[in-house]
């Protein structure tokens, strides 16, 4: 049995596609057995992070309104270095910019259940 590396992990998911976002939230909530934060724009997520707390992991679609995924993780990394930033996209052209932005992972869409299990295994269980 693997030990959980981040106890009481707090994860935020940012995507303006409600169906996709709800799916990601359900999988992660089930895996970590903790509440998962959910936002439909980068700006809403950033306001929450500024006003309340920094999640341990943010998983953001790149093309979201307000602040896009790149802008959001740049601000997040500046405020909370060491925390994990994952970017999602259905556009292959976004992969290299995601690498350059310092994202810890790039999730190509359509995201599968196994991809999200890998996220939990890599960033929550192994840390």
């Amino acid at each position: 049995m693997n030990p959980v590396n981040i106890p009481n992990v707090k994860i935020a998911v940012i995507d303006d596609d409600l169906m996709a976002r709800d799916f990601v939230v359900t999988v992660l909530m089930y895996c970590v057995n903790r509440d998962v934060l959910s936002f439909d724009s980068g700006l809403a997520a950033w306001r929450y992070i500024e006003d309340y707390e920094s999640p341990d992991i943010i998983i953001s679609e790149i093309d979201v309104p307000g602040l896009n995924g790149f802008e959001l993780i740049a601000k997040f990394k500046e405020k909370s270095p060491g925390k994990k930033c994952l970017l999602m996209s259905d556009n292959p052209a976004n992969e290299q910019p995601a690498r350059n932005s310092g994202a810890d992972a790039f999730l190509a869409k359509p995201v599968s259940v196994n991809d999200l299990f890998d996220v939990v295994d890599t960033f929550v269980v192994k840390g």
């Binding site: 995601a98 992972a105 790039f106 190509a108 599968s112 996220v119």
Partner: peptide, 11 residues
Amino acid sequence: MIRLGPASVRM
């Protein structure tokens, strides 16, 4: 950076 999900052509 790790990469997860389908290959670029299937995105």
